[in-house]
Amino acid sequence: MLLIHCPYCEEARSELEFRWAGEAHIARPENIAAITDEEFAEYFFLRNNEKGLTYERWRHIHGCGRFFNAARDTVSDRFVMTYKAGLPKQPVPPAEKVSAIAEEKTVETWEATEGDAR
């Protein structure tokens, strides 16, 4: 079971209590009526879909109900850290970054584990 640390409950809880809420740190334009269609598309539709470290919003929907931010590795599904909503993008601690990369190498891919399965 994947455990996620909620910065409001100050505790790691089962992923079953949480819901993903898209990419984090996307600022709504100050005057949305004034921007071009291309700028609107960029703001509204386009996401980075990073492979590796990514910043996302998550919601502890079946717990405290709060939205918060998380840095997650999309290859290993490992949560590097979580922090409260409203805080600026937090740098990933160097030690964590190293172990996240190390863990990336040990991730089980379909090719590695099931590739030969008949």
């Binding site: 717990g63 405290c64 109900g65």
Partner: peptide, 10 residues
């Protein structure tokens, strides 16, 4: 106390 999940219900 905690709000949480019991199988399929909150």
């Amino acid at each position: 106390c905690s709000r949480t999940v019991l199988a399929k219900v909150e």
